[in-house]
Nucleic acid binder design. Sequence first.
DNA 1: CGGATGCTTGATGTATCTCAAGACGTGTGG
DNA 2: CCACACGTCTTGAGATACATCAAGCATCCG
Lengths: 245, 245
Amino acid sequence: MPTLTAAGIEPLFRLLGRYMVLDEADRAALSTLETGPICTCDARTDIAREGENPTVIRLLVSGWACRYKDLPDGRRQIVAFFLPGDFCDLNVYILSELDHSIGALTQVRYYDIQPQQFQEVIDQRPHLVRALLWHEMVSAGIQREWLLSIGQRSPLERLSHLFVELYYRLRAVGLATGLSFDLPITQNHLAEANGLSVVHLNRTLQEMRRAGLIELSDRQLRIIDLDRLKSVAMFNSNYLHFNRS
Amino acid sequence: MPTLTAAGIEPLFRLLGRYMVLDEADRAALSTLETGPICTCDARTDIAREGENPTVIRLLVSGWACRYKDLPDGRRQIVAFFLPGDFCDLNVYILSELDHSIGALTQVRYYDIQPQQFQEVIDQRPHLVRALLWHEMVSAGIQREWLLSIGQRSPLERLSHLFVELYYRLRAVGLATGLSFDLPITQNHLAEANGLSVVHLNRTLQEMRRAGLIELSDRQLRIIDLDRLKSVAMFNSNYLHFNRS
DNA sequence: CGGATGCTTGATGTATCTCAAGACGTGTGG
DNA sequence: CCACACGTCTTGAGATACATCAAGCATCCG
């Protein structure tokens, strides 16, 4: 389980470090978040269900999870991927009822963090709020970009865009080597995230391979030509706000 | 211009009042937000463009606006509607570059609020943060629901869902009378928000009329059978979080 | 009167879904 | 150790929902 070896909250450090320079005191304060017990969850199981009352903030440390919504007749839409270092929901605990579900796509490990415990970190290092807020804004930006993708981009463009996004996000937390990264999810998941049938997603993948844009096998994605992939996807990285302000 | 007659920040009071009981001191503090000059913007013009550096928080008081993203080749996706009482962007001013544009769909009026001025209101009435945070969470929830709609719902379901959502949101700010409300935007806008061509949107509208779900003419939408419309849309209002916690 | 803008309709093509089946790998219980 | 179930990827055939292109009409406004 390669995705499980990357432990601790190192990914979080890297993530927040892209928005703001973290000093030792910051790291120390954030490290208290991982003093609690770590949770493990098997692939294809729910971490939280729509309708529940959210009480904790979840910090993913290894594996992939997703936020999804479903319809009474079973149709399902993945609306976000959670990668190591991501908070599943920084603020929802103020709501009385979850409007979406969170599912593990692979085996995952995460910390359940009490809002109060979180508050203590912020009290200690108030300027961290800025980085956390930034993280939230990026999540919102990704959400909007997905809406643009599903609404306007063709399947080929859409999938290309998703792969570039995942590449940048994984690279930001040290989980990409060169132009390759572990893609531990199924084509079914990719289809559900892109609003496509599995059959069509599969054919789109083949088209991408034929076009020499990517290689994908054994859960390893390799981008062959990043510039061309970005061009096909009409990718503009501004929504990831990776530049420190 | 009926949408222009509803002035002031009464809509905002109503909106926040759904999340939290506001007392006179709260209202007084919030009222200082409207002491600045009011801005007016014509229909079909941009209020803010992608790439700009955001510096103000915008509070819409009358008319409709939208958040949209576009692709180099001109394709455009509306990712959110802003109705009277909505903040266009509560937090983006911490980012250095806007990742989306904001456009006026009708003639609109809004206040440009300096973050600092906003901070003063919060310093005065700290518990208002909760209501504002709530407003942000609802916006995020709407965004997710739209993703579900575009990704999984059929055009008929999708449009039905949008109309129910608009009905609830407009009712919340006092802009619906009975089951009717002003829908001051074009079919083109509806198409761009739903990821459909205008032609198909038009035919879907006709299908809805034929099915006895709605009446729509002269920019007035009347819902004929709310329960049936909700049922067609598979509408679950939980994502609007209208219940006080 | 002429030019925008928005709504509507028809005809045609095609992108995408659905249904169905087979191949492959993996884990599990007999 | 084999038989079997299960999950995943792949391919084919057929149906259809949707986009595109094109045109006509109404309204509004200069």
